[in-house]
Structures are given as C-alpha cells and as structure tokens.
Design a protein around this nucleic acid. Structure first.
Lengths: 148, 148
DNA sequence: CTTGACCTTCCAGTCACTGGAAACTCTATC
DNA sequence: GATAGAGTTTCCAGTGACTGGAAGGTCAAG
C-alpha cells in the first residue's frame, strides 16, 4: 500500500504521515524498489489509531505514550484510564478558560446597544476596565487560543 | 517610561511589546538618546487594552481590528458588538469541540475497569473503533488543541 | 511516447510567543 | 573614576502540528 492509499484508508493525510514519521511517532515503513513508502495493514491500523487519538485532542507526545500502552500487552488498564482521565481534566481546564472568556464578552456585549451610535461599553471596558477574562489564572501560564 | 516599566504597568511583557511592535500591532514608540524605547501614558494605556483583549482570546489580527474600532470615535457600537459576538460564537465552537472530546473519553473510560488487568476498552476502542470525537466536523478544517 | 497523477525530498511559512547571545547603557556603590 | 549588576538593544532560533510549494523521479493509461 503506498502512502496515498494508506492516507485515505486511515484518514491521516500523506503529509501528516510523513510528518509523523519524521518526528518519530511512527517507524519508517518498507520501501518499494522505486523508493515509495509501502505500508502493511498493521501500519494502516496504527495510523487509524493515531487519527482517533488526535481527534480526541492528544498531542504527538501523548500519542507516543498511547502507542506504547497500545502495544504493551501487559500494561494495567488502570494506566490507560489514568492517562485518559488526566487528558479529560486538561480538556476541561481549557473549556473553563474559553467559557470564562465567552462569559465576559457576552456580559460586556449585553450592555452595548449595538446600534449606530458610537458609545460602546465593550470598548470602554477593555480600555479602562478592571481585570479581564481568566476567572483567576492562579498559577498556570497556560496557552491561549487565538481565533482567526 | 522605558520598556520594563511599561511592561509592568500594562501586564504585557517586554518581549511581547517588542513582538507586537515588530508585527505592526503597535507603532514604534519614541526613543531616548541612547536608543531606549520611551512609552507615553497613552501608549501604556493601549498596551493595557491589548492585554485585556488578548485575555479574551483575540488574535493579533483581531486586536488590530479592535484597536481600529477603539480609536475610531465615529464607528457604530453595533460594529463592536458584532465583532465581539462573532468571537463568542467562535469560542463556543471550540468549547463544543473540547466538550465532545472529553465526553467521548469519559464514556470510554467508564467502561474500563482501571485495575491491574491488561484488558482495556479505551485502547480497544481507539484501536478498532468507529469514528471518534468531533460530533461531526461538517466542513471546517478547524484547529486542534494538543494538550502537552 | 506523452500526459497526468502519484511519489520523493527539502525548505519555508503559519501563530504568538519565548529563550538566549552579544553588545550597549544606566544606576549605585566603593 | 572604576566596577558590578540590572536593564536595554538587535538578531536568530525554537516551539507544535502541521501546510504549501518547488524540483524532480515513477507509474499506468491511452
């Protein structure tokens, strides 16, 4: 199976497959005489696993751990569960962050007439207001989400 | 006011201030004879505005628009409100995405014993399962959130 | 034999920063 | 006046997870 077929069979683009190989998430596959990558059914299976993990928001580094757990037949299911739940906690933290931003903005927008007049409490609050969104970023220098 | 003072007065680090200048979000400030950046109270005020906008999850590009709205005394408050609400919609889209991921993971984890035995439905589902998290990514090639 | 779809490698760009090096300036102390 | 330490300057490189594109090799169909 060449890379294009592996891509459509797994849902991971050819570009991404090469990238995952490059960063060491997956091993280099066999090559044809002409130098084309040649994927076995098992490797395509692994790519599908990777795609699903990525759809659940796991980073490449975390996927490395997941693949290790996957291929380790003797690991305890508790290890997997702990890993999954730690990720859930992280997802929820990000959700709360986004929620706080949205809440603040909705609150500001509620007091804005939204008409033709220039007077706008949203801008005024951003301009001179008190502290903004994150309810209270207590210790984490967390990543932010530029919407673009 | 030099850059360090402007940084602590605004909550935007010196590094970020230089970066924002470099990418054109803010204008180059005056310089002292020695070449040090010299910020006026108005510029520090603008930096605070920027920090609050960033805390609400606006990208640099969006902040450029916000600054334009800020300094345009004749713009309609409706323009600002529309801009803010579009961002809220985007934040909510991301929240739903994260929520779907967390839900899927929690669901998988619920069926996992989480003990010493190797049998683990989480891994099994990722390995051979049906479609994963995003409830149904209908058209957007949306950004994802690697938790690291 | 040519066309076009595929594959290969490599380099650059994205976004919003952060870290660090080398060199300069400022302020305080001795 | 010398010196130390903190602050500033520029510039370059790296982050994560890709995506785009150029230049060239390969394959199957007509």
């Amino acid at each position: 199976m060449n890379i294009g077929q592996a891509a459509s069979a797994s849902g991971v683009s050819a570009k991404m497959i090469r990238y995952y190989e490059q960063v060491g998430l997956i091993a280099s596959p066999a090559r044809t005489e002409a130098g084309y990558r040649d994927y076995s059914p098992d490797e395509v299976h692994m790519l599908r696993f990777i795609r699903r993990a990525r759809d659940l928001g796991f980073s490449v580094e975390q996927m490395t751990n997941l693949l290790a757990l996957w291929s380790d037949r003797s690991r305890a299911s508790g290890d997997v569960k702990r890993f999954a739940m730690a990720h859930v906690v992280e997802l929820e933290r990000k959700m709360r962050e986004l929620h706080a931003m949205a809440e603040t903005l909705r609150h500001l927008a509620k007091t804005c007439h939204g008409d033709e007049r220039p007077n706008c409490p949203i801008i005024e609050e951003l301009s001179s207001g008190h502290e903004a969104a994150p309810p209270k970023p207590r210790r984490s220098a967390s990543r932010r989400y530029g919407a673009h």
